[in-house]
Design a protein around this nucleic acid. Structure first.
Lengths: 189, 189
DNA sequence: ATTGCTTTTTGCCAAATGACAAATGATTTC
DNA sequence: GAAATCATTTGTCATTTGGCAAAAAGCAAT
C-alpha cells in the first residue's frame, strides 16, 4: 500500500485525510498466472495498481493472431481506459503473465473518489496522461527498427521482464515469430 | 474558428462568455510547407489546432534515420505535450507537410484559460487523453503487421493523406523503405 | 520547350524474417 | 519418476524486405 501512496504523491499533494479516503476504498486482488483482469467483449469495471507481478494487454488482429500490446509491471496502473471511461465493450484482454498482487478500485468507488477529493482529479489526469505518453513512446519506435533492435529496446524497457515473460509473449509484443526471437537471443550472447 | 468551437464542445459544455474568452486568445498561424511548428532541442511554446493542411511529428533514431511518428491533419490539436507541459527540451520536430493554417495559443494564454475557466480543464483533459489514446491505437498495431498491411492501415487512418503526404514520409511512418512502399503501391492496384 | 531539381519507380542482388516441422528441454500431473 | 503437456530451440527452405544505383516521372523556373 505504501508503494501506491508514494506513487500517487509523485503527481500532486494530498493530506492525510484524503489519503485515508482513497486507501479505504482499495481492495487487494490476487491474480493467478493466466487469469484475466478484464476481458474483450466486456466493460472494464475496475482500476488496478500492480503491486507484484506482470500483466499483459493483448488482442486478436484481423488474421486471428494474438498480439500483445504491452506489459504492465510493478508500480503501474492497469486499466482498460477506453472501456472503463466510456462504458463500452473492450476489445482487449488484460491477463496476468505471472501470479500478481493488485490493488483494485471498483468503478463506483473510483468515480466517488474523483467527486469528493478535488485534487485527486488532477493527480489522476497526470497519471493517466503520463502512462499514455509512455505507451506511445515505448511502442511507437518499434515500428521502424529491425528485429534485433526491437528486442534490445524491450530489454531496456522491461529489464526484469526477460526472466518472467514467456518468449512467445515477448515475440508477439515485438512483432516477430518465436523462432526469430529465439535465434536473436542466441546471437546476442 | 467555428471548426474549433465545434470540436471543443464535443468534449463538454461552455457558455458563450467562456467561448469568447477562449477564442479571443486564439491567434492564426500560417505555416509554409516544411516550416516547423516546434523543434527538437527547444521547449514547445504553443498549442495549435489544425484548420487546414497536414503536419508531421518526427525524430532521429540512434542510426540517424529520420522517423515520422505521426501525422496531424485537420481538426486536431498539435502540441508537443511532454515538452510543453514540463518545460523540457523536445526531441521531436513538428513540421508542416503541406502549407497549413493553424489556430494557436501561447503557453501563457493557454495556462491562463485553464485557470479562469474551470470546465475548460476537464475538456482539455478529455481532448488530450483521447488524442493520446488515438496515437497508441494507430501506431501500436503497425508493429505486428507486414508492410502491405501497414500501408492499408495508413490508408484507412489518413484517407486524405495519400494525395498530399510524400511517399518518403509515409514510408518512414510505416517503417519501410521508399522503394518497398513504391512496390506495394504498384501491387495493390 | 529546356534545364535543373526532387520524387518516385524499377532492377538486381543480399540479408532478414517467416513458415513449417521436428527435436530438445522444462514443467506439471498423476 | 514416467507420461503428458507446454515452451523453446533448431533445421530447412520460401518469402519479404532492404541496399544500392540507375532510370523515369513530375515540377518549377526561366
Amino acid at each position: 500500500m505504501k508503494a501506491f501512496i508514494d506513487y500517487i504523491l509523485q503527481f500532486g499533494d494530498l493530506n492525510q485525510q484524503q489519503i485515508d479516503l482513497i486507501t479505504k476504498k482499495a481492495g487487494e486482488l490476487e491474480l493467478l498466472k493466466d487469469e484475466y483482469f478484464s476481458e474483450a467483449g466486456k466493460i472494464a469495471q475496475q482500476v488496478g495498481f500492480v503491486l507484484e507481478g506482470v500483466i499483459r494487454v493483448c488482442y486478436y488482429n484481423n488474421k486471428g493472431e494474438e498480439i500483445t500490446k504491452y506489459f504492465i509491471d510493478e508500480n503501474n496502473l492497469v486499466v482498460d481506459l477506453e472501456s472503463f471511461n466510456n462504458d463500452i465493450c473492450s476489445n482487449a484482454y488484460v491477463q496476468a503473465v505471472t501470479d500478481c498482487k493488485v490493488l483494485v478500485f471498483s468503478k463506483k468507488d473510483w468515480k466517488e473518489l474523483l467527486d469528493i477529493i478535488i485534487p485527486w482529479q488532477a493527480i489522476v489526469n497526470k497519471i493517466i496522461s503520463r502512462a499514455l505518453m509512455q505507451k506511445v513512446e515505448r511502442r511507437s519506435p518499434l515500428v521502424s527498427e529491425d528485429a534485433t533492435t526491437r528486442y534490445l529496446m524491450f530489454l531496456k524497457i522491461y529489464p526484469n521482464g526477460v526472466n518472467r515473460i514467456p518468449l512467445s509473449y515477448i515475440a508477439s509484443y515485438l512483432g516477430m515469430t518465436q523462432s526469430s526471437l529465439s535465434r536473436i537471443r542466441k546471437n546476442i550472447r
